[in-house]
């Protein structure tokens, strides 16, 4: 089982449950960025895998997808730790999906402690608009 997390903490219901299976896609962290545009046509939920929390490619993929104009739901899925929550949100993800064991080790309060991801952000400050 997995747990979904956003700024409000651990979710009891999946906000994307209405999305048609056809409109969902899972991306591996080594997805070739050259193919992103065509892969995402018609998609409304994109899940980017974090096979390990140390694999930071998902952050770049997320920003790239947003920079290319994708407006749908973006989810970070896999080994993401609470300490990365601000990075996830700032990179353009909407929420995080982790497994139960990790959720037990890092309970909700550790994620809520990072819910203020908009504060203290050098990137917004340097760009003048939300990146």
């Amino acid at each position: 089982m997995t747990v979904l997390i956003n700024d409000t903490g651990f979710l009891t219901e999946d906000p994307t449950r209405w999305i048609d299976p056809e409109a969902r896609i899972d991306l591996a962290s080594d997805t070739d960025p050259a193919h992103l545009r065509s892969m995402l046509i018609g998609k409304e939920l994109v899940r980017i895998a974090f096979p390990s929390f140390a694999d930071g490619r998902g952050f770049t993929l997320a920003r790239l997808i947003r920079q290319q104009g994708y407006k749908g739901w973006l989810r970070a899925q896999g080994h993401v730790i609470a300490d990365q929550y601000a990075m996830v949100r700032r990179s353009g993800f909407d929420d995080v999906e982790i497994d139960d064991t990790l959720a037990q080790r890092q309970p909700e309060d550790q994620w809520l402690a990072r819910a203020d991801w908009q504060a203290h952000d050098y990137q917004t400050r340097l760009r003048g608009i939300a990146a």
Partner: peptide
């Protein structure tokens, strides 16, 4: 200094 601020806590570049 500008680079210091830009690179500090850059969300995309903490797990390079």
């Amino acid at each position: 200094e500008l680079i210091r601020q830009w690179s500090t806590d850059h969300p995309e570049f903490q797990f390079l």
